[in-house]
């Protein structure tokens, strides 16, 4: 794979992760436990969809095949999506929404921090902006982890259950795709394995403070397949543009 194709794939992976979590969060609109939280989750969704728009637009330029951010979002099938499997997991309950968000936020803070020093100026500028958004996300989700962990037995139990269920999907964050070796070497993108130590420290600090246990990793975590949930999500997200191509309003 040449560098251009590798960068396209890398941008797709970042863009898809943001697009899918943005859609998941948009499903929470009007379903937050209180008005402020409804507004917060909707703000999160807006930031992630905005990041996806910028990244997929850039990806389309890099690919140089005439595909726009909308084409990449609405006219690809599940098998072509490269998002982290963590973000396609459903909004089972509020603890799942917060747990999934917190695990992602810490990862994105660390990733964007490194990416903001990319040798690719355009990517560095985008990451610097995304980083600030992720910092606010992380503060918010970490505060909720603490609140639920230190709340009632019910909230503690649900939070722990959500983390245990989500944990296997975190291994994927720290696996370097061999196709990106050249990008890593030339300083365009950071190595994912390098993020793991700091991520683990931050997550374990917040969980410990909240009276929650760090879930156990398993050797099988690295080889999880895409879930049925992504196809269901795409069926809803892509319905309109696929049924009425080029519809405008």
């Amino acid at each position: 794979m040449n560098n251009q194709a590798a960068l396209f794939q890398y941008l797709l992976q970042l863009g898809d992760t943001n697009l899918i979590i943005g859609h998941r969060l948009s499903e929470m609109c009007s379903r937050g436990p209180m008005l402020e939280e409804d507004i917060a989750l909707t703000n999160f969704a807006l930031d992630h969809i905005g990041q996806a728009e910028v990244l997929l637009h850039f990806a389309g330029n890099v690919e140089n095949n005439g595909r726009s951010e909308d084409d990449l979002s609405y006219r690809r099938d599940a098998e072509d999506f490269m998002n982290l499997k963590l973000v396609e997991q459903p909004n089972t309950d509020f603890a799942f929404v917060i747990g999934r968000q917190f695990l992602l936020d810490v990862y994105q803070c660390l990733l964007y921090q490194k990416l903001s020093k990319s040798t690719n100026d355009e990517l560095a500028g985008m990451a610097a902006r995304f980083l600030k958004e992720s910092i606010y996300h992380q503060r918010h989700s970490a505060a909720w982890i603490e609140r639920l962990g230190q709340g009632t037995n019910e909230s503690l139990g649900r939070m722990q259950h959500a983390l245990n269920q989500l944990w296997p999907y975190t291994a994927e964050m720290f696996v370097d795709n061999p196709a990106w070796a050249n990008l890593i070497e030339s300083g365009v993108v950071p190595s994912a394995t390098e993020l793991k130590k700091e991520w683990y420290e931050r997550v374990s600090k917040v969980l410990t403070l909240s009276g929650l246990n760090m879930p156990k990793a398993s050797a099988e975590d690295d080889s999880l397949n895409q879930s049925i949930y992504l196809e269901q999500l795409l069926a809803e997200m892509q319905y309109l543009p696929r049924t009425y191509p080029d519809a405008k309003w």
Partner: peptide
């Protein structure tokens, strides 16, 4: 330049 990425 946009302020927040998704700012409407």
């Amino acid at each position: 330049t946009p302020t927040y990425t998704g700012c409407p």
